[in-house]
Simulated scan of single mutants.
Amino acid sequence: MSIYTRLQELNIALPATAAPAASYVMHAQTGNTVFLSGHIAKKEGKPWTGRLGGDMETEEGALAARAVGIDLIATLEAACGGDLNRVRRIVKLTSMVNSAASFTEQHLVTNGASDLFAQVFGTQGKHARSAFGVAQLPLGTCLEIELVAEVD
């Protein structure tokens, strides 16, 4: 099944590719491996701010992670020359969660993105992952995720 059919079935419209906020590129490729720069959580086009275990609960964080996942897919599409069917495997996600010192559910927050990739890419969407808490993220966002993928 086409990745685009799955996106349509999930009612996901890919947004415009994000622009870098500083001195970096949104993706870089070496061989068949594509590295996507960290994408911050956005809500209604603006940084989704908050601290998990402070003013945000795990469930809202998972929604933010899903939103980041959609943005990552849009950037991955650009990295693939406009064809997501070139994606062979989502290899690794690294998730940084803006967390209160006592918050320990970073892994559950990150499931919002991980589950999305499995829904969209099937078994090729299952990936290795790191999820950890940080004291702060750019613009006060609640979450930042980077991705590594294998492409044709």
Rank of each mutant, 00 (worst) to 15 (best):
M1P: 08
M1H: 02
M1A: 13
S2H: 07
Y4C: 00
Q8F: 01
L10P: 03
N11P: 03
P15S: 03
P15K: 11
T17K: 08
T17H: 04
A18N: 05
P20E: 07
A22F: 09
Y24P: 09
V25T: 15
H27F: 14
T30M: 14
G31D: 10
G31P: 08
T33I: 15
V34W: 01
S37L: 07
G38Q: 01
G38H: 01
I40L: 10
I40K: 09
K43I: 13
G45H: 11
K46G: 06
K46N: 12
P47F: 04
G50E: 06
E57L: 15
E59L: 15
E60N: 14
E60I: 15
R66F: 08
G69D: 00
L72Q: 09
A74D: 00
L76D: 00
E77Q: 01
A78G: 01
A78R: 08
G82P: 04
L84M: 05
R88H: 11
T94M: 02
T94D: 04
M96Y: 10
M96N: 08
A100G: 02
T104M: 01
H107C: 10
V109L: 00
T110C: 14
T110Q: 05
N111V: 05
N111R: 14
G112T: 09
F117A: 06
A118M: 12
G122R: 02
T123A: 13
R129E: 14
R129S: 13
S130K: 12
G140F: 05
G140P: 00
T141N: 03
L143W: 02
L143I: 07
E144Q: 11
E144R: 10
E146H: 05
A149G: 06
A149M: 07
E150W: 00
D152L: 11
